[in-house]
Design a protein around this nucleic acid. Structure first.
Length: 431
RNA sequence: GGAGAGGUGGCCGAGUGGUCGAAGGCGUCCGCCUGCUAAGCGGAUGUAGGGUCAAAAGCCCUACCCAGGGUUCAAAUCCCUGCCUCUCCGCCA
């Protein structure tokens, strides 16, 4: 949710910011509704004040054994007015709340203005694309040929956009999860504050999804369990960010950094016909997620660090990638600034998103009331949240199959994963 | 799923329908004191929205004692429903 005062102070600026995201917002309607709500609140408060003072007057009289019938009937009248004022306030409040929840975050000033993904800006490339003296196969063919990846049986069990890994494929998935978590929790050296690993619920309450921004706007993207009013998580961002919902933490504990491995569930409602083959776009996929809670002053540098933490996984795996900065038109709903990390996919001869690292500023923390007590003056302030994939497991697995494939149809296991693969250095055909 | 007990501030914990935003303690902050530290002493200390003010402080108003309803002139307090926690039983990986 946006900072109301900030919007009221500079509605033109806000309108420009929305337009840069490709959104036309009727600011007059917005400000009108807000003002109407505000006057209803003031009216209701004034009536409550009147009732409260009359009621305590009754209390005083009763204690002195005086008659209070006259005031009591006066209060009854006031109470009728309160009921009306309350209805009006409630209606307007619901409309206002619904309206504010529909607005996306405002882009940071450093975000390049652009219409869509074609105007994203490449920040850097790391590692050269491997050259093959044969035509590289797509990962689903490699996986099928090796006998470790099966979409047909998955479809029989669950329908389209599901997959089954078997044998070394399943082991490779497990290896990637362990490897990534080990790096982030710093069982390997070099990071000053390691991430704390969390294992979290996969089913969450609607409130949790409202806090992170998936609800109310993106309901159709979510799997929903109606009998219990619970949703399957589309990303670990939801349970991990909500870990601190409604809490006030002390500044001395910051920044708080968490990582979590979870499966993720997405309906991919708007993606019909896109990436129909392979592991790129599945209803269920695995991901290791990184989440930061930061003081506002340090969240922008935190975004750089977070992005590098995620990219560090690709560097260690020896996979070529690039980092791009999303333009205003391509920015996610809750994000103020996003770097996407894209890995090279030889069969497609292009980079594909494997991580998305964002600073949500106070957009999620205002919705979820996640705050901290400032050391300096003991005041309570909203935190900033950030998150990024570190990384998507399925896409990483696909990238390894494709980038490390050989002319013989085998796959070289990245060196850092060998210990996690029981010493295996190559994936070969299995039955 | 059944029975019972509970949900109060950063934490613990009192609270008779009106003077309760709520005793007391812990923690935290500011002083004092003692070579230093600890201890001790004194004071301050909820959140949000609004008003007053040039602004800050201060003062004032409204809301919040799990959530939502209800009773009442008046609810932390009484009633109902839901959620959550704990104990026992049942079931279960």
């Amino acid at each position: 949710m946006l900072d109301r005062n900030r919007i009221l102070k500079d509605p033109e600026g806000a309108e420009r910011a929305f337009r840069s995201r490709g959104l036309s917002v009727d600011m007059t309607a917005l400000l009108g509704l807000d003002a109407e709500w505000f006057s209803a609140v003031r009216e209701w408060e004034a009536l409550r004040e009147k009732r409260n003072s009359l009621s305590s007057e009754i209390g005083r009289k009763k204690r002195q054994n005086e008659n209070s019938d006259e005031i009591e009937s006066e209060v009854r009248l006031v109470n009728q007015a309160i009921t009306q004022a309350e209805d009006r306030k409630r209606t307007l409040e619901a409309r206002r709340e619904a309206m504010w929840l529909e607005f996306p975050n405002l882009p940071h000033e450093s975000v390049p203005v652009g219409r869509d993904e074609s105007e994203n800006r490449e920040v850097r490339r790391v590692g050269g694309a491997p050259s093959f003296d044969f035509t590289p196969k797509p990962h689903w063919e490699i996986g099928a040929d090796l006998g470790i990846l099966d979409f047909d049986r998955a479809a029989r069990i669950s329908g389209a956009r599901f997959s089954i890994l078997s044998g070394a494929g399943a082991r490779l998935e497990r290896a990637l999860i362990s490897f990534m978590l080990d790096i982030h929790t710093n069982r390997t050296p070099e990071k000053s504050v390691p991430y704390r690993e969390l294992s979290v619920p996969y089913l969450v309450l609607p409130e949790s999804l409202t806090a992170t921004g998936q609800l109310p706007k993106f309901r159709e993207e979510l799997f929903y369990v109606e009998a219990d009013d619970l949703y399957l998580i589309p990303t670990a961002e939801v349970p991990v960010t909500n870990y601190l919902r409604g809490e006030i933490v002390d500044e001395s504990t910051l920044p708080l950094k968490f990582c979590a491995y979870t499966s993720c569930f997405r309906r991919e409602a708007g993606a019909a016909g896109k990436d129909t083959r392979g592991l790129i776009r599945q209803h269920q996929f695995d991901k290791v997620e990184l989440v930061w809670f930061s003081v506002p002053e340090r969240s922008w540098e935190a975004l750089e660090t977070l992005t590098e933490d995620a990219a560090g996984i690709l560097r260690r795996l020896g996979l070529p990638y690039r980092v791009i900065e999303l333009c205003t038109g391509d920015l996610g709903f809750s994000s103020a600034k996003t770097y996407d990390i894209e890995v090279w996919m030889p069969s497609q001869e292009r980079y594909r998103e494997i991580s998305s690292c964002s600073n949500f500023t106070d957009f999620q923390t205002r919705r979820g009331q996640i705050r901290y007590r400032r050391l300096e003056d003991r005041k309570v302030q909203l935190l900033h949240t950030l998150n990024g994939s570190g990384l998507a497991i399925g896409r990483t697995l696909a990238a390894i199959l494709e980038n490390c494939q050989t002319a013989e149809g085998t796959v070289r296991v990245p060196e850092v994963l060998v210990p996690y693969m029981g010493g295996a250095t190559t994936l070969t055909r299995e039955g």
